[in-house]
Design a protein around this nucleic acid. Structure first.
Lengths: 166, 166
DNA sequence: ATCATTTTTCATTTATTACTGAAACTTTCT
DNA sequence: AGAAAGTTTCAGTAATAAATGAAAAATGAT
C-alpha cells in the first residue's frame, strides 16, 4: 500500500471509529492527521489536508487541546500557532480514558447512587432499587479499575515494562 | 425521591448516557425501561410508556435482542410477544462489551495490522508505520483484555466471587 | 495608536441520524 | 379459506448534530 493511500484510509477509519464512540468525525480526523504528521501543522494545513472550514478546524483543535491530546507549538519567527499531537499511545489512551471517565462515567455513578433513597416498599420499588444498586456497584467498579489503570504511577510502570519487552 | 420520578430520571439518564457512547437514545431508553420492569412488556407497553412509535419500538426491541440484552417471552394464552431484559449486570456488561468488541474493535485492529505493509522508507513512512504499529499493539492488547474478562469462565468466577462477598 | 495578521465566535446552513406511520406481511384462529 | 391480531418494513419526515463562513475579537509588529 502506498503512503498516500494508507494515510487517507487511516484518517477515514479513525474518523468513523470515533463517531461510533460518540466523538465527532472531524475531531477524530484532525487527531488522526496530527498523529501521523511528523511536523506540527498550522490551522491552514489542517483545513487544506482535510478539506474542512476554518471554524471547524479551530473548534476541533481547541477541543483536542482540552482533552490533552494536542499541544500548541510556537515556531520561532512565525506568528501563527502550530499544533502537534501527543504521540505516545499509552498517554493518549490515558487521557481519553480519564476525560470520558470524568465527563460521563462519574456523573452516572453519582446519579445511580441517588436512587438508593427512592421511597416506598412495594415490589416495584424493591426491583427498581435492586437494579439501580447493581448498576451502581458495576459502574463504581469500572470507575475504580479505570482510575487505577490510568494513574500516572501505573502508567510509568506499564511504559517501562513495555519498553523492556520490545 | 418518588418511584415515578426516579424511573423517569433513570430512563432519561440511560438514554443520554447511551447516546454519548454511540448507542441511540431510544434503544437505550427501551433497554432502561425493560431493566426496571418487573414483568415482561409488550410492544404496546413500550410505545405507551416511552411515547414512541410502533416502528421505533419494534426496531429497537429487535436490536436489543440481537445484542442479547433482551429476550422474547411468550405468555400462555396470549398471542402477542412480550419482552424482558436480562437483569444480571455482569451478563449485560459482558454482552455489550463482546458485541462492540466484535463490531468495532476487531475491524480496527485488523485495519491497523494492514498498515504494516505500507511501502517506502522515507521518514514519513517510518513515522506512519510507527504510529500504526503502536496503535495496533494497543488496540490488540485492549482486545485481549476484553476477551479474557468477558469469557464465560471468568464471568462464572466473578459472579461466584461477588455472591460470596454479599 | 494603527494596522495587518491570526484566532475565535456564532447565526445560518448542511449533513446525518433517528422516528413515524401506513402498508405489507405473517401468524393463528374459526 | 378468510378474518383478526400482531409484526415488520421502509419511504418520507423530523430532530439533532456538525460545518460553514463571515464578522468580531485578539494579537503583536511598527
Amino acid at each position: 500500500m502506498e503512503l498516500h493511500e494508507a494515510r487517507e484510509k487511516f484518517i477515514q477509519a479513525w474518523g468513523a471509529f470515533g463517531s461510533q464512540w460518540g466523538i465527532n468525525r472531524s475531531m477524530a480526523q484532525v487527531h488522526a492527521l496530527l498523529l501521523i504528521s511528523t511536523e506540527p501543522l498550522s490551522t491552514e494545513d489542517v483545513m487544506e489536508q482535510l478539506n474542512i472550514s476554518r471554524g471547524n478546524a479551530n473548534m476541533n483543535l481547541r477541543a483536542l487541546i482540552d482533552w490533552h491530546l494536542v499541544d500548541r507549538v510556537l515556531k520561532t519567527g512565525e506568528r501563527r500557532e502550530f499544533f502537534q499531537a501527543e504521540k505516545d499511545v499509552w498517554t493518549i489512551a490515558t487521557h481519553i480514558t480519564r476525560e470520558r471517565k470524568k465527563r460521563e462515567l462519574e456523573p452516572m455513578v453519582k446519579l445511580l447512587g441517588e436512587f438508593k433513597e427512592t421511597s416506598g416498599h412495594s415490589a416495584e420499588v424493591k426491583a427498581f432499587k435492586k437494579m439501580a444498586g447493581d448498576l451502581h456497584d458495576l459502574t463504581g467498579r469500572i470507575d475504580a479499575v479505570l482510575e487505577r489503570s490510568t494513574r500516572s504511577d501505573v502508567q510509568w510502570f506499564l511504559k517501562a515494562a513495555s519498553s523492556l519487552l520490545r
